[in-house]
């Protein structure tokens, strides 16, 4: 699905990713953990095409294609989805309009028939229910006045509508209460499928109790310093990160 080779990336002249390698297979869920400021969001942003990041070395192959050569919207049409750590509010742009425009742009790109308003609305209502999002949110402006938890729920709802092949969840669990966490994780689990992969960025092992990862990575010092199975998350929870660096150095 996704192969990252020797990725180096800078923000404002400062190198954040320093030769990162990662391979994510079809249908797999990979958790990315690591201390604050390690570069987890940087990696997520570089993969989804946000401006302001300079890739100085390396390459990313996604479904056989050069991901980094694509515009953000092309990546979306090719099935990449980013659930933002901090979803932005967009007053005056209607949620439903955005989703319909985005979904139909993707369908057009894939040579599929565009959905009409009726088909779209019934599909969207159904998906909203899976993350227990009130359908009234659809006619509101994107994220405007949403609570922190509602914003995160909205991200997963959008993911359910856009049905990506590769989803990046950047700290979707932060800011959620226990019940919301269960709902959001439930939404994510419903989307698990053999042809859909996910990269889940989190600080907490708790999320991984709900969304069971196939692989857990530690991102530190601009690289994947350690890779393990889901038990690694438990070790990190109790021991922190310093030992990972020490082990990697030796």
């Amino acid at each position: 699905m996704l192969t990252i080779e020797n990725l180096h990336a800078r923000v404002e002249g400062k190198e954040i990713l320093k030769g990162l390698n990662l391979e994510i297979g079809s249908g797999e869920i990979h958790a990315i953990m690591g201390p604050n400021g390690a570069g987890k969001s940087t990696l997520s942003n570089v993969l989804s095409g946000r401006g302001g990041y300079e890739v100085t070395q390396g390459r990313v192959i996604y479904q056989g294609k050069d991901l980094l050569a694509m515009s953000p919207e092309e990546r979306a049409w090719e099935g990449v989805f980013l659930a933002f750590q901090y979803p932005v509010e967009i007053p005056g742009v209607n949620n439903a309009y955005l989703l319909k425009a985005g979904l139909n742009a993707k369908r057009k790109y894939l040579g599929l028939q565009e959905l009409d308003a009726m088909e779209f609305m019934s599909m969207v209502r159904e998906k909203a229910a899976t993350v227990e999002l009130d359908a009234a949110f659809l006619s509101r402006s994107v994220n405007e006045g949403f609570s922190g938890g509602e914003k995160k729920r909205n991200e997963i709802f959008q993911m359910a509508v856009l049905e990506p092949s590769f989803a990046i969840l950047d700290e979707t669990d932060s800011g959620l209460d226990i019940d919301a966490l269960r709902v959001v994780a439930g939404g994510v689990n419903q989307l698990r499928s053999p042809d859909r992969s996910m990269m889940v960025v989190t600080h907490y092992q708790r999320l991984l109790d709900y969304i069971e990862p196939d692989v857990v990575h530690v991102l530190m010092d601009g690289q994947i310093l350690k890779t393990g199975d889901k038990s690694l998350a438990k070790v990190l929870e109790s021991r922190g990160y310093d030992w990972v660096r020490a082990e990697a150095r030796s």
């Binding site: 989804s48 095409g49 946000r50 401006g51 515009s71 953000p72 919207e73 990546r75 979306a76 049409w77 989805f81 980013l82 933002f84 979803p87 932005v88 967009i90 007053p91 005056g92 742009v93 955005l98 989703l99 425009a101 985005g102 979904l103 742009a105 993707k106 402006s141 994107v142 959008q158 856009l162």
Partner: peptide, 21 residues
Amino acid sequence: FYLQSRGLSESEARQLLTLAF
């Protein structure tokens, strides 16, 4: 970027934000 990441082209995203304004 948010709009583009949801599949809107850059020009469409610019247009939409301008119309919202």
